[in-house]
Design a binder for these strands. Structure first.
Lengths: 247, 247
DNA sequence: AAGTGGTCTAGACCACCGT
DNA sequence: CGGTGGTCTAGACCACTTT
């Protein structure tokens, strides 16, 4: 348990491989190594930090399990990129009763700015009235409107926010956040409820008023644990399910 | 990439540590080492199998990450046991709007047997009419009835099923399955929908008919991946949320 | 003191990828 | 071919637990 850098207190020093892991994660979080960048090789990192290759390997494997990096034999180690596929498989959990995942398409209904309301401030740990960017979008599954989403972003984190004409990016916001604003969503917390649809929601979803909906209140976190998005989703579960695994 | 045991085909041989992991998992799944049993030490396993301690260690660490075993420095390695705490934290995801988890209490409403219906057969991958054990229970949160659960078990896996008088066991079924029937639930899949309460459900939950409920359709898997329980849960989300993390 | 798992190192060999 | 990550080994030392 040598120390990579001097520490103020003697006890409770972390194992070397955890120090290496934290150090590398810091560099990624800072944006020093943007997504897609190849990391130095194991031996090189080891030489720079004065630790063995085995210790570096252990740190890198931990980061790989957390999906911060991707390693490929013969090629090297790379900072992970959000692909549509990854975003869809990881953060989009709608499936039909047989477990098949649909490919959603999106239609933007509204976009605007305004001060944070109570819910947004509470969920994103922001002061009331913080400037926010808001999007309301409808998502179609197999051509039918089934999902309504209200997305709220702290304007400070997403300056000059505009939606690209590119279809794919509009469909997967997290790819957009990363490529255009350097915000990488790593983790999210969700709270689910069953609600009766408001009249305006029912109208947007082309369903009868009084319809029953699944409401998903999500907060997304970036690499450094900061709250970067709040998303309210209303899902019509007549034909679709919210599907998840507990391990 | 030596081989632990002879294999029929030359190519695609697994790495040694995966073979060791599979072998140890097999012994646990068979019940050769029941929950709580101490495993042999790393060196001992290595000697028995003719591999190095490092390789055994890698296999054990993988099993620990999957929560099949627990390791403690100085003590040893033990087959994991279901504790109430683990079961509650892992498989019970209800919380209040501020994220606080309640401690539920249970009341058995009905218990009986019968042939598997369509849903049970489909979800548990069993033939229609397979003998089933069924329980209907009400769960109270802070003294108020909020959850109704219909539990279905393949009778063959749970012979002589009876509910213990012991309060704690009744409250955490997975602890009961493991201690009394040797069935360890490792993993589950859930499908969530929003529904309007049937009259009888609304009555059991002491709510107005036509109330909105969150329906959770769960299938639980044991150590060897076999489907061992189907559970339909109806949750009143007026005061409570279903809470989860995406990573 | 003896035994366990936890950390760290050093080195060998393999599989894969690019040139 | 040289460079990368992947596997496997052997050994030293540390931290923790039990006897």
């Amino acid at each position: 348990m040598t120390m990579l850098l001097p520490e103020e207190s003697r006890p409770a020093a972390q194992p070397l491989y955890l120090q290496v892991e934290a150090l590398l994660m810091g560099r990624i979080a800072e944006g020093l190594w943007p997504p897609g960048t190849p990391l130095p090789s194991e031996v090189e990192i080891g030489r720079d930090l004065g630790v063995s290759q085995g210790t570096v390997r252990k740190a890198l494997q931990a980061l790989e399990r957390r999906r911060l990096i991707e390693r490929r034999q013969g090629r090297g180690t790379f900072v992970a990129e959000h692909t549509s596929e990854r975003a869809l498989f990881h953060f989009f959990r709608v499936a039909d009763p047989w477990g098949r995942k649909p490919v959603p398409t999106s239609r933007l209904l509204r976009m605007g700015t305004g001060p944070a309301n109570n819910d947004e401030a509470r969920r994103l740990h922001l002061p009331l009235e913080t400037p926010m960017m808001r999007l309301l979008r409808l998502r179609l599954l197999e051509g039918r409107p089934c999902i309504l989403e209200q997305i709220s972003l702290p304007a400070a984190l997403f300056p000059h926010f505009t939606l690209p004409l590119d279809r794919e990016l509009t469909d997967e916001m997290y790819v957009l956040y990363q490529r255009r604003h350097g915000v990488t969503v790593m983790r999210a917390e969700e709270e689910l409820r069953a609600i009766a649809a408001d009249a305006w929601i029912a109208e947007a979803l082309a369903g009868a008023a009084g319809q029953v909906l699944l409401e998903i209140d999500r907060v997304a976190f970036d690499v450094s644990g900061q709250r970067v998005e709040r998303r309210l989703t209303w899902l019509d579960t007549t034909d679709w399910r919210y599907r998840l695994e507990l391990e």
